[in-house]
Design a protein around this nucleic acid. Sequence first.
DNA 1: GCCAACGTTGGC
DNA 2: GCCAACGTTGGC
Length: 159
Amino acid sequence: MPRYWLLKSEPAMFAFDDLWKAPKRTTYWDGVRNYQARNFMRDDMQVGDLAFFYHSSVDPAGIAGIVKIVKAGYPDWTAFEKGHEHYDEKSDPKNPTWVMVDVQAVEPLPEFVTLETLRGVKGLDGLELLRKGSRLSVQPVSAAHFAIIAKAGKAKTTG
DNA sequence: GCCAACGTTGGC
DNA sequence: GCCAACGTTGGC
């Protein structure tokens, strides 16, 4: 059974649309520099897992699309590149501190699901994103929550 | 090991 | 731009 996740990105840096236009609609998810988020990627994320692509620090914030994990955790090499935005001198290439995964865009949500919308959706009690003070950039999402949110992102139909 | 200071995240 | 919340650092 696949697990489900939510990945945050600032669209000014990298938006779902950028991933959609990328070769094979695939990229490496670098720059996670939080241990809890790192542990999720390193220990629990597996090929075939699905994740929401969440746009943070933008108005409105919300979920733009769905991605699939296509490569499980491996060393985040951007931590080794001096001058790189995500360089971390304390990460030893022989014993890397940080981890990245590869993700592939699956589909955009027909309707962008804003954070405000999510707060009004029933059945999302316990969703990490909605927890006060939550700022984890990699979060687990239950299968039930994933289904509810995906449904909320489907285009409204008449009749 | 405690905890104050500091830096970052991210919604508003 | 503000600031609450939270993670990390470093003195002790």
